[in-house]
Amino acid sequence: MKISRVLLYPALIFFLIFFLLPVYVVLVTSLKPLGDISLETMWSLPKAFDFVNYSLAWEKLGPSVINSFQLVIPASVIAAFLGSMNGFVLAKWKFPGADIVFPVILFGMFIPYQSILIPLVTTMRELGIYGGIPGLILVHVIYGLPIMTLIFRNYYASVPTELIEAARVDGAGMLGTYFRVVLPISIPAFIVAIIWEFTSIWNDFLFAVVLTGPSSWPVTVALNNIAGSQIVQWNVQMAGALIASLPTVLVYIILGRYFLRGLMSGALKG
């Protein structure tokens, strides 16, 4: 006996509509011509498709989309690489106290970033990297280290220790073992880690809004600014929302399986 199909499918479809309702509104609103924004028809399909909202939104968001890419790609690759080395050491080349150091590292991924924000801004001003993308890359790499280390440590924990031992017996040092034995089998973990980091840095707002200026705004900050202003029409705002979420949504659609694995490790479950 299972839940009756007569109830099951309507329930599943009801929730499908609940989750897709905002997506529907974004699409129909952003495709309507600018004149066609009467509130009365906001739920109806557009009579004609018009991409003018997208070009208007791109005028406002384009530079910040490019900023976001310049931020996200180096930050996620560097963070993943460092996380991989840390994860390898904490799983397979432990130093005394490594098992105590690990939760101490992990705490860093749960802290509310407000609690380090004032010292962070002060330090970055002192170092002369406040207000630009390179500084923001550094910040995301550092605060991304705990989750990156976690993902790789969990992954390497399942690698047979014999593999590491065999390399050691062959006279390989730690770096030799890492580069010749461990790194080549790490590709799935790198995909999971980079997708996670890509998504969370792309979607970050707090660091971005505090640490960048108008010329280096990532897309979340730029989108929030046009949303806050009264002069930008809803059609353009919705087009902007779609532009701002397209890269991470595409990654999700294409590589959803790996995305899910990252989500799971975020809850500390291996």
Partner: peptide, 24 residues
């Protein structure tokens, strides 16, 4: 398909969610 759609919002930022729901 159902699972992917239910999980889709996780790929989106709170900012985008906020902008869209402000309209809704």
């Amino acid at each position: 398909l159902f699972r992917s759609v239910y999980l889709l919002p996780m790929a989106i930022s709170f900012i985008v969610t906020g902008v869209v729901w402000r309209w809704l």
